[in-house]
């Protein structure tokens, strides 16, 4: 991936949020983008968990990189990622039991989110700790931004509410399809389309 050469924090931010956005450019982490985006509150908590995990695991991998033997490099990265995900899971279980119940197995499945492993391997493995933390965090934020947009549309049309607060009047007929995972496919498709069109207009090289 070409973005490993990027060293400037501002450029990293732009790359991770826009030109190399994990969801609509790299199309990573789609499983959770389909599963947890029908209510904004759940999406918010879930994506905050991802931001935390990506940032902290990138930081830890970067701090430990010179001690990690090459052969067990990926095993150790997975261990670090799993460690932070389990921390998130434990904290949710203890202090936000309702959200934890709604998210079900998806918190645990953050471990398998390719964005996190991708950043650890592509960036943190060869960059300084603080910069890796920033890269992990902005990648997480890129993921969060897109998921929140999807959740916004899905909750509004599927339940007539935002963050659980009713927006449309009682008589509103909810779009049942928006509550089910397939609608996220359509929305992600639309976002990819819109995103690429804008990039094309701005003359960015479309990947």
């Amino acid at each position: 991936m070409s973005d490993t050469a990027v060293k400037d924090p501002g450029a990293i931010l732009k790359t991770n949020l826009w030109t190399s956005n994990p969801i609509f450019v790299q199309v990573l982490g789609i499983c959770s983008a389909l599963a947890v985006t029908n209510l904004l509150t759940n999406t918010m908590i879930m994506t905050l968990g991802v931001v935390f995990t990506t940032a902290m695991s990138s930081l830890t991998v970067s701090l430990m990189k010179s001690f990690i033997p090459r052969k067990v490099r990926m095993v150790v990265q997975t261990l670090i990622i799993a460690f932070y995900v389990i921390i998130v899971d434990i904290v949710l279980r203890a202090y936000l039991p309702e959200v934890s119940r709604n998210l079900g197995p998806y918190v645990g499945l953050i471990i398998t989110n390719c964005i996190i492993m991708g950043r650890a391997e592509a960036f943190a493995q060869s960059n300084r700790p603080i910069l890796s933390f920033w890269d992990g965090m902005t990648s997480g934020l890129g993921y969060m931004g897109v998921l929140l947009v999807i959740a916004f549309v899905r909750e509004l049309l599927g339940f007539g509410s935002l963050f659980g607060v009713r927006i449309f009047p009682e008589g509103f007929t909810p779009w049942t399809i928006m509550v089910m995972p397939p609608s996220a496919f359509f929305l992600i498709g639309l976002i990819v389309w819109i995103g690429k069109t804008i990039m094309h207009r701005q003359g960015e090289p479309v990947t």
Binding site: F67, P69, K71, V72, V75, V76, L79, F83
Partner: peptide, 19 residues
């Protein structure tokens, strides 16, 4: 030697234990 078998085993064990 960080790539040696001994170091790899000890390192993996210590890291697992710590986390």
């Amino acid at each position: 030697n960080k790539q040696s078998l001994g170091y790899t085993i000890v390192f993996s064990f210590v890291v697992c234990f710590a986390f």
